[in-house]
Design a protein around this nucleic acid. Structure first.
Lengths: 111, 111
DNA sequence: CTCCATGCTTACGAAAAGGTGAGTACCTGA
DNA sequence: TCAGGTACTCACCTTTTCGTAAGCATGGAG
């Protein structure tokens, strides 16, 4: 893909956390490590394809750690790395903002 | 469009600030009010279509204020509302995070 | 020998987002 | 009369994202 150059840190950060699911995944892993199935159940509406796709990207970014247990049935646990935790920390004010103004945001549909 | 319900504030906030340009526009208006042409020149690579589209959405969200001066040639100034400024404030930690880790982020292309 | 659960992977297509380039309306100054 | 600057608006197309549904490998339980 095209090499991205960012104009400011915000630009870069939004690129990392953008999309429909990454913030949710980050949030879900905030408390504890979860396995694939647990993650899927805890994020309502996500498909397996999207979940894996996002997890893979986040793994590539070094945000999440993937731990495979060679068992049957298989078990794979996902957890936040320190990098992921630092991102989560940076997102807290934004989360608070969203929480505070959620009614306003929901009230203005697009289109 | 479909009514969105958010699972957490972060979800809602990312929805507001998501996309390729909104964060940049917010950032550009952080310092001072700018007119259309100035905004366009200060955000490299944006097309007129995108700029207006995003500005209109942000206006609908109550993030930016649009002031028309009835002159010839026309002059329209965009500025942040208090709501927009509060969002910008909530984005600062994220911007710092992005700034700090920009090299890491740029180094991992997707695809 | 078949079924089950888990954690994926793949193919297909719809929908949304983004980009390009042309055109409009207005008055001013040459 | 005619080009110029400003702020859009529109039609059309490409790219990216998202969703749906199916299939695969493993080994233990029945």
């Amino acid at each position: 893909m095209k090499k991205r150059t960012y104009n400011c840190g915000l630009d870069a950060a939004v690129d990392v956390v953008g999309g429909k699911w990454k913030a949710l995944i980050l949030w879900a892993l905030h408390r504890e490590a979860l396995r694939f199935g647990e993650l899927k159940r805890s994020i309502s509406g996500i498909s397996e394809k999207m979940l894996i796709q996002q997890l893979r990207e986040m793994e590539a970014y070094g945000l999440v750690h993937r731990e495979v247990y060679h068992q049957v049935p298989p078990k794979v646990e996902y957890s936040l790395t320190e990098f992921g935790q630092s991102l989560n920390a940076a997102l807290i004010p934004l989360g608070d903002w969203g929480e505070k103004h959620m009614e306003t945001i929901e009230a203005i549909p697009r289109d």
